[in-house]
């Protein structure tokens, strides 16, 4: 314990020292439970507001309440991809291993939110539009986004050499990020050409403030959840990658001793 403290005090004091996996590991372990707690509290409050306080929609009835899951999930799925591309770019430019690990740790959560958004969207579509799926621009780009996530995860999983896996994944994440706007605009153009004006969510009447509050709370809950889960996942990645180092040995010994 003393030795660890000493070695830590010789490190530079800048926050950049946390880019070393060894330094980030304990920090992530300290932060993750807090974010998880915030996610739980916000989620409970948001769901309470969404399911009990917010008024019934006069057009759609109770069905609209799926929005409190659906919209935050859709937001997060897109945002997480951006964050992933950001960490990939940082990793490729600054050559920091932790950045690649962050990108890798984010991907499953992004894909999960993508799937949740598509799934709840389908369940919402059936009673309101009369069909589980329409080839609407938003739905289609969401589907393609999920394929991008799956491609990233499949590629990084298929390459055994961690260095190559990290860089290849980062490159495909960046290529995907460049293509996401192109895909979105081409798909919306295609859709308007083929179907004319189809069902659109943007034309929905303005929202009651409690609805908005519930949705924002749920969105923040999704943020906190993503951060917590990513930190936990990155901790596992760090241990896996650094398993040959001394500090991981000490860390695991300490954890076993505590248990």
């Amino acid at each position: 314990m003393m030795k660890e403290k000493l070695s830590r005090s010789t490190e530079p004091k800048s926050w950049l020292r946390f880019s070393a996996p060894q330094m980030f590991y304990p920090l992530a372990g300290k932060m993750a439970p807090w974010f998880a707690a915030v996610a739980a509290v916000l989620g409970v409050v948001g769901l309470y507001i969404g399911l009990f306080v917010a008024p019934t929609d006069f057009q759609q009835g109770e069905v609209y309440r799926v929005i409190f899951i659906h919209v935050p999930a859709a937001w997060m799925s897109m945002f997480v991809y951006l964050v992933m591309a950001f960490w990939s770019a940082v990793g490729l430019v600054m050559n920091t291993r932790l950045s690649f690990m962050m990108a890798k740790a984010l991907a499953p959560t992004g894909a999960m939110f993508c799937f949740v958004a598509l799934w709840t969207g389908a369940l919402w579509g059936k009673p309101t539009w009369g069909t589980y799926w329409v080839w609407d621009a938003r739905l289609t780009s969401q589907l393609l986004l999920m394929f991008l996530y799956l491609g990233f995860m499949a590629l990084t999983a298929a390459i055994e050499d961690p260095r190559r896996s990290d860089r290849a994944g980062a490159l495909i994440a960046l290529v995907g990020a460049v293509n996401v706007p192109i895909i979105y605009f081409s798909v919306s153009w295609w859709n308007t050409l083929h179907q004319g004006a189809s069902v659109s969510l943007t034309k929905a009447p303005s929202m009651a403030s409690t609805m908005l509050a519930g949705m924002l709370l749920m969105a923040f809950a999704a943020w906190a959840y993503t951060i917590a889960v990513t930190l936990w996942r990155v901790r596992s990645l760090i241990l896996e990658r650094e398993r040959h180092t001394e500090w991981v040995g000490h860390e695991l010994d300490a954890q076993e001793g505590r248990a």
């Binding site: 491609g151 590629l155 995907g176 081409s186 153009w189």
Partner: peptide, 16 residues
């Protein structure tokens, strides 16, 4: 794997 990586990126070309 190549199909999974590349086919989503081909969609705009297909559309146009």
């Amino acid at each position: 794997l190549l199909a999974l990586l590349i086919l989503p990126l081909y969609v705009p070309v297909l559309i146009f």
